[in-house]
Design a protein around this nucleic acid. Structure first.
Lengths: 186, 186
DNA sequence: GTCTATAAATCGATAGAC
DNA sequence: GTCTATCGATTTATAGAC
């Protein structure tokens, strides 16, 4: 990922925030620069002054989203056992997903964003680290499917209609509790 | 949902098939009628002769996708116990998701499609039946979160990068096995 | 940083011939 | 059913003033 030099100007921050909200609602492909400009109350030209292309905005949004995931991965990798590492990462992923529900949604569900993550090497590396941690040392079909379920469940459940009217704390607790059932050893 | 009268002409079938594939790759919002026309080798006007608006195409795709889910729900509702009904539905959902992976993906993950499902009453009714079956009679936070996890995990895991190179049978078996762990009583 | 103005391409959608 | 041709709106993107 990018260095911590990723300090954004107020203008850029407003653009990224607006883009994230719009991406969550209309999808990346269904969000135009005009919509972003209207949301923050400026013209398209002002947006283009900060980001030269739409792809750069998608990139910036992806960076914000993945930065927290990466720091969670780094924290998890510092644990002594693989089981502890996985536990820490899952906890962080649940916290992140619940705290900013639409953020997780955009990251792991939007088709355009998923393509972006696969095509940009820095993102792929973060996802590879996360996947390795979730699989906990194994590499067979059970571990792969379990990791896929974990990632999909966390990102998907928080924006499911059934979870919409749950308060954050209830959702966080239940999600963490039930997701732990997926592991055999307890 | 619509009556079984939903028999499509060859032309309409080609359009819906192409649209489904493109929706999965670029998202609904990122797919134009030109892209659909190019994929099946005709002009936009030919597409418009079958469907008067883009929304009608999205509707047709949603109908194809939800028709199988609805028949699975009907089958499940015929079971005697709620536990059996849930079991049957989950089995059908896993089969459906694995068999046509991108189909499940588009249905439950695309932001535009999700909006569509919420705004059209017939779709909402099917989803309400599915959710009721997944919750198995309960209505509290645990049941809600469990149902949300189930739906998100099944639809999301089948298109997760870690599951891409698994053959259908392995994926189906593991997914079903692990998803069952979410239930306390066994 | 933000604006007006505009270019060039593409969007969804329609008319009418075959 | 499919085509050519076109409309008006919207898209990404740029030039240049303030």
């Amino acid at each position: 990922m990018k260095r911590p030099e990723a300090s954004y100007s107020p203008a850029k921050t407003r653009i990224v925030d607006a883009a994230l909200a719009l991406f969550a609602e209309h999808g990346v492909g269904g969000t135009s620069l005009q919509m972003i400009a209207d949301t923050i109350g400026v013209t398209k030209a002002a947006v283009y002054h900060q980001y030269n292309t739409k792809d750069e905005i998608v990139l910036a949004v992806a960076q914000v989203v993945l930065a927290r995931l990466e720091s969670a991965a780094t924290l998890a990798e510092a644990e002594r056992s693989r089981a502890r590492a996985r536990e820490v990462l899952i906890g962080a992923m649940v916290d992140l997903a619940v705290e900013r529900r639409q953020l997780a949604s955009v990251l792991q569900r939007d088709p355009v964003m998923l393509r972006f993550l696969q095509e940009h090497e820095p993102f792929r590396q973060v996802m590879a680290r996360v996947n390795r941690l979730l699989m906990g040392g194994a590499s067979g079909a059970p571990a792969r499917v379990r990791a896929a379920i974990l990632a999909a469940a966390i990102a998907g459940a928080v924006v499911h209609p059934l979870a919409l009217d749950l308060d954050d704390e209830s959702l966080r607790r239940e999600l963490l509790k039930q997701v732990r059932k997926l592991f055999p050893n307890r």
